[in-house]
Simulated scan of single mutants.
Amino acid sequence: MTGTPIRLVIVDDHPVVRDGLRGMFTGDPDFAVVGEAGGGAEAVTVVEAVRPDVVLMDLRMPGMDGVAAIGEFNRRGLPARVLVLTTYDTDSDVLPAIQAGATGYLLKDTPRDDLVRAVRSAARGESVLSPSVAGRLMGRLRAPAQEPLSPRELEVLTLIARGRSNREAAADLFISEATVKTHLLHAYGKLGVNDRAAAVAVAFQRGLLTPD
Results as ranks from 00 to 15, higher is better:
M1D: 11
M1F: 14
T2K: 03
T2G: 02
I10Y: 01
D13F: 04
H14D: 03
P15H: 00
V16T: 12
V16A: 03
L21C: 11
L21Y: 05
T26D: 11
T26Y: 08
D28T: 02
P29N: 13
P29F: 14
P29V: 09
A32G: 12
V33N: 05
V34A: 08
G35H: 05
E36Y: 02
E36G: 09
E36N: 02
A37E: 04
A49R: 09
A49D: 15
V50C: 10
V50F: 11
R51N: 05
V55S: 04
L56M: 13
L59D: 01
R60N: 06
R60K: 06
M61Q: 02
G66W: 03
V67L: 03
V67Q: 01
I70Q: 03
I70V: 06
I70C: 01
N74R: 11
R76F: 11
G77D: 09
G77K: 02
L78I: 14
P79L: 05
P79H: 11
A80W: 04
A80E: 05
A80L: 03
A80T: 03
L83Q: 09
T87F: 14
T90K: 12
T90P: 02
S92H: 15
D93C: 11
P96S: 04
A97L: 08
I98A: 01
I98Q: 02
A100R: 09
G101A: 05
T103A: 14
G104Q: 02
L106Y: 05
T110D: 09
R112S: 15
R112H: 07
R112E: 12
L115W: 02
R117S: 15
A118T: 00
A118E: 06
V119R: 10
S121I: 10
R124T: 14
R124Q: 15
S127W: 04
S127D: 10
V128A: 04
L129V: 14
S130C: 04
P131A: 06
P131K: 06
A134F: 07
G135L: 11
L137P: 00
L137K: 05
R140D: 08
A143Y: 00
Q146V: 06
E147V: 12
S150D: 07
S150Q: 10
P151E: 09
R152A: 11
E155T: 04
V156L: 02
L157K: 08
L159R: 13
I160W: 10
G163L: 02
R164G: 08
R167A: 13
E168I: 14
E168M: 08
A169C: 15
A169N: 12
A169D: 06
A169F: 02
A170Y: 05
A171G: 10
D172V: 14
L173S: 07
F174N: 13
S176V: 04
S176G: 12
A178I: 02
T179K: 06
V180G: 01
V180Y: 10
T182P: 00
H183C: 04
L185E: 13
A187G: 07
Y188F: 03
L191G: 07
L191C: 07
G192I: 15
G192M: 07
N194V: 13
N194I: 15
D195Q: 08
R196M: 03
A197R: 13
A197C: 06
A197I: 11
A198D: 15
V200A: 00
A201Y: 12
A201V: 14
A203H: 15
F204I: 15
Q205T: 12
Q205W: 05
R206M: 04
R206A: 13
G207Y: 10
G207E: 05
